[in-house]
Design a protein around this nucleic acid. Structure first.
Length: 307
RNA sequence: CGCGGGGUAGAGAAAUGGCAUCUCGCAAGGCUCAUAACCUUGAGAUUGUGGGUUCGAGUCCCACCCCCGCAA
């Protein structure tokens, strides 16, 4: 019975899977990205997976290039490599080292949303469901043959954090169910339908900026797709304001998109069609606060408009 | 030493070196058929901490603590 697993990953996404694997398998090695300068003082910060590994006394490597660790990967004679949100392309030379190959955990139902931001894409596009796909890795990103998949629903109030949590938990379950069948040869991988593949790019600053001349339903999706991190934003008088949570409100009286007004005692913004109630915001340099609190501090709402 | 904003009542914000004010909330009362409405009154503050300048500091100077945006 194959037991030795190498895990490769960087973000929190892989942690539920690790917790589960730890019980039934031997985690012989964890590979993650090097510590990077992060945060306000550019302090060297370890990736979440490293923190987890050290807490659980599992050997960690942080190569600049994973190819540098080839010998250390071979050394424990691994049976399988599991990859989840690593952040680097892994060369085929490495993928083929473990006896049963390498499996990638992806946060969408492939071939839909190949690439770096599948979770955000599913929310931003208003999809009713998404899921986890396990694939046998090949040299192209998110391209290899399918091993298993599990679909979950997206609720209308899901945001990035809640969906990320659900998907990472789902991934843990799916991996636990699938591995025994995979190593016993019970599962035959099958080619993705490459014709239907879609790609989602790495997020940029522009993706999270609100254009108020869009329908409120789209802006609401955008807000949910990017929160709580990295935050959807707009500007008021040249200052950034993050919109962390909003709610659609039927309102057609106001004309100008981006205009602030009060509806039912709460702060609202006009979009292309209806409006959005601002439930939670974060002004530049300030802590997170409710829309009502923000409204209390505003003077003369008449000349206030989001750009 | 990456760049920058901020800390004032339970919350959010004002305050040319000179009585610490406004909005919300809270409490009591009033008005109304009625309200997340309106009116009256009230409680609630060692202005982040420690020094300094000054007749006088929320405000100016020095040090420190904490929170946040950008960037990565």
């Amino acid at each position: 019975m194959p037991k030795k697993i190498i895990f490769v990953g960087t973000t929190e996404f892989g942690i539920p899977t690790l917790e589960k694997l730890m019980k039934d398998y031997e985690l012989v090695l964890i590979i993650t990205q090097p510590d990077k300068p992060a945060g306000r003082d550019k302090k060297l910060t370890p990736p979440p997976i490293k923190t987890w590994a050290e807490k659980n006394n599992i050997k960690v490597l942080q190569p600049q290039k994973i190819l540098d660790s080839k010998l250390q990967i071979l050394d424990p004679q691994p049976d399988l490599m599991i990859v989840a949100a690593y952040g680097q392309i892994i060369p085929k030379e490495i993928l083929d080292l473990p006896k049963f190959g390498s499996i990638n955990i992806h946060g969408s139902i492939l071939p839909k949303y190949r690439g770096a931001s599948p979770i955000q894409a599913a929310i931003a596009n208003g999809d009713a469901e998404t899921g986890i796909t396990l694939i046998q890795m090949d040299e192209k990103m998110d391209h290899g043959p399918l091993i298993a998949a599990k679909t979950i629903n997206i609720n209308s109030n899901d945001n990035y954090m809640t969906l990320h949590k659900k998907l990472s938990d789902t991934a843990a379950d799916l991996v636990a169910e699938t591995l025994p069948k995979w190593v016993s040869g019970e599962i035959k991988p099958y080619e993705q339908n490459h014709e239907k593949a879609t790609f989602v790019h790495l997020l940029s600053k522009n993706d999270s900026k609100i254009n108020w001349s869009r329908p409120s339903i789209e802006i609401d999706r955008q807000i949910r797709a990017f929160n709580p991190e990295p935050g959807t934003w707009t500007t008021l008088a040249n200052k950034h304001l993050k919109i962390l949570a909003a709610e659609i409100i039927a309102d057609h009286k106001i004309e100008l998109p981006g205009k602030l007004y009060v509806a039912n005692g709460e702060l609202a913004v006009k979009c292309l069609d209806s409006g959005l109630l601002l439930k939670k915001v974060k002004p530049e340099g300030k802590n997170e606060m409710t829309g009502k609190d923000f409204l209390n501090g505003l003077k003369n709402l008449n000349n206030k408009i989001f750009i």
